[in-house]
């Protein structure tokens, strides 16, 4: 699904207020939608993601919880089975570790074992930024590897709003990741019934020479690199996955058919990570369209440090993307394009 089909922008929001808007509209529309999490009623969550909804909807529907992640997700699972649509807000995705059984062993498996859908959304701010090793985990691959969970990771306000609406009108669990560094990013948002389908990637930037496949903050990095490379005459196509599970294989394959060269940009570690899955997917479905091997540009296999220069030292940056894309664009014959 391409960006060309999107309706004309109607309003501008931030990444965070887009979530709040989407929630507000869905809560107005559907009285069974409610939110539970820590510090959400007054503060509106640690990223202001539901700011103002407490006053509007009251304590029953914007429920402050104790710091009990297992109880938060478990109660969301059971409530979802009992005719409601809970949104469990973990604030930081890292806190999912305290509720991993509820997420992986309960929410994700109930439809399969017992034939009952679990319309649960677990929202959490994710991605690598400041905060050190324990607040910057990349759980994408863990959750992508869990049958029964959808995993979304939008990069702009439009998709935040459209995806939360899809999640709240669907039937199965969705882990809704939002990148820390995008919290204040501004952009257009759709109207009350403009949904972004879960499982659909978008072409964030058209280009004919190399496809960069990424998501979340990677879209910003890729776009900056693409702008710089355009000055050299290299036209970079940027694919924003928007959803990590299920992957939009069709959009990825079509992109590679156009350019024949693909780089996967990911701030998660390479080993068994999302980039590995995407590279393999291209090998499975588009091998004969590839002119060069798929390149992965990822974070180092390391926890995230505190010191900013150390963080920068292990994340892929714009300069590295430019270098890698340039090499990929110019490569001929047997590969020397292996990067990182």
């Amino acid at each position: 699904m391409s960006s060309a089909t999107e309706p004309r922008p109607k309003a501008v929001a931030t990444y965070s207020t887009a979530f709040q808007e989407g929630m507000r509209e869905e809560m107005d529309r559907d009285p069974t939608v409610f939110v539970l999490g820590t510090d959400i009623y007054d503060r509106g969550g640690h990223f202001s993601q539901v700011k103002g909804l407490g006053e509007r909807f009251g304590h029953e529907r914007i429920r402050d919880t104790p710091i009990s992640e297992a109880a938060m997700v478990a109660s969301g699972v059971g409530a979802a089975l009992n005719g409601t649509r809970p949104v469990v807000d973990l604030n930081f995705l890292d806190f999912a570790f305290g509720a991993m059984d509820e997420l992986v062993n309960q929410a994700a498996k109930i439809r399969y074992m017992w034939g009952r859908p679990v319309p649960l959304v677990v929202r959490a701010t994710a991605g690598v930024a400041q905060g050190g090793a324990q607040h910057n985990n990349s759980l994408q691959a863990w959750l992508m590897n869990t049958p029964g969970l959808a995993v979304v990771f939008p990069s702009r306000p439009w998709d935040v709003k459209g995806l939360i609406k899809s999640a709240l009108r669907g039937s199965d669990p969705v882990v809704f990741m939002m990148h820390k560094l995008l919290t204040g990013a501004r952009g257009p948002v759709g109207g009350p019934d403009e949904l972004v389908p879960i499982g659909s990637a978008r072409i964030a930037r058209p280009g004919s020479d190399v496809t960069v496949i990424t998501y979340g903050y990677g879209v910003v990095v890729a776009d900056d690199a693409a702008t710089a490379l355009a000055g050299e005459g290299i036209q970079v196509e940027v694919i924003d996955l928007r959803t990590l599970a299920p992957l939009d294989v069709t959009t990825l394959v079509e992109a590679v058919k156009r350019t024949g060269r693909a780089l996967v940009l990911d701030e998660a570690p390479a080993l068994s990570g999302p980039a590995a899955e995407i590279a393999t997917t291209l090998s499975d479905h588009a091998f004969w369209y590839l002119d060069q091997p798929v390149v992965r540009l990822t974070a180092a296999h390391s926890p995230i440090p505190h010191s900013p220069p150390l963080v920068d030292g292990l994340l892929p940056n714009v300069g590295q993307v430019i270098d890698a894309v340039r090499r990929l664009a110019l490569a001929r014959g047997p590969s020397q394009s292996s990067v990182s």
Partner: peptide, 17 residues
Amino acid sequence: GAGLGIALGAALGASVR
């Protein structure tokens, strides 16, 4: 312990509805 969590949520759903 997980069954208690499902029941907890069912009770929450009953309360919300």
